[in-house]
């Protein structure tokens, strides 16, 4: 390869990278500018507005239930993270480290269950929550999330547990350590990456989910952010893009940060999910 040829290729690559960067950044820029531009819509040909405004944020806090939605979502996310991680880890530990009657059947059931489209059970879940009075209630939604996370999550974590050496546990058992102690003192520290992955996933889930949130939560005061923001741009007030943008920024910043901080675990977890089945 000649020198100039190599240079031209590199120049083309840089050009392509810069173009891609523009395409990647544009929607992000669009939403950031939208949040600070006066009026309801954005003028694409004059991206930088004459003046910036904070009125959309003010609008969010004063006119809408945005803060309440934020609090709802945070609450649901934290409780779901704790509950789901607990359920997933206990089930995975049982399947990975014990040989008991019904284990094979249990594993097969989990494998099949996670293949069903999740909203096949939607109508039933709706009626069930209605019956036990948990419709339009945050606990109802948390139960739905936690129930849905078990099958897939337990498979993943079980796969990870299987890869950990058993010798440490055997040694601890000989020393007379109980099952509970072995679990907390040996298994938990060793499996930190996958636990972080499961926890982060279950924390982020409620911020993103809109299908079940819209099904379960009915009243304005109980909504989560995804439902509230969706209605800003698709409801009657279809033109409130700038208000939506302001809200979206306030959601995106913490979630993006969580993602960036835990990125290593997320990539690892996703890869593990594919290889270990």
């Amino acid at each position: 390869m000649s020198r100039t040829g190599g240079k031209i290729v590199n120049a083309l690559i840089y050009l392509f990278l810069i173009l891609t960067a523009v395409v990647v950044i544009f929607p992000v820029l669009w939403i950031v500018l939208g949040a600070f531009t006066p009026g309801n819509t954005l003028n694409a040909t004059k991206l930088i507005p004459d003046r910036f405004t904070l009125s959309h944020f003010e609008n969010l806090f004063v006119e809408t239930d945005f803060l309440l939605w934020y609090w709802n979502t945070l609450k649901i996310a934290v409780v779901n993270m704790v509950l789901s991680t607990f359920l997933v880890v206990t089930a995975a530990y049982a399947f990975s480290r014990f040989r008991f009657k019904g284990r094979r059947a249990g594993l097969m059931t989990m494998l099949v269950l996670q293949m069903f489209p999740s909203f096949m059970g939607m109508i039933a879940i709706y009626i069930l929550l209605l019956q036990i009075g948990l419709l339009d209630n945050h606990w109802g939604l948390i139960l739905v999330y936690a129930g849905g996370s078990i099958a897939g999550g337990a498979w993943l974590v079980k796969g990870y547990f299987d890869g950990l050496p058993k010798s440490l546990e055997d040694a601890a058992k000989i020393d007379g350590a109980s099952n509970v102690k072995i679990f907390f003192k040996i298994m938990m520290p060793l499996s930190k990456p996958i636990l972080v992955f499961v926890a982060v996933n279950n924390f982020i889930g409620p911020w993103m989910d809109f299908i079940f949130a819209r099904l379960v939560l009915r009243s304005d005061a109980n909504k989560t952010l995804a439902v509230g923001l969706f209605e800003f741009v698709t409801g009657r007030g279809n033109t409130e893009f700038t208000t939506f943008a302001a809200g979206a920024i306030l959601v995106a910043i913490p979630i993006t940060l969580v993602f960036v901080i835990f990125q290593r675990y997320i990539v690892e977890g996703l890869t593990a999910g594919a290889n270990k089945g």
Partner: peptide
Amino acid sequence: GFPYLLLTPSIIFTAFLTVLPLIFGILL
């Protein structure tokens, strides 16, 4: 019974929030 004890919460959750709705969905 330790493994069963570990599995009980998951079994209850799965039975009512996954299996029951699915059976219902299929029957529909």
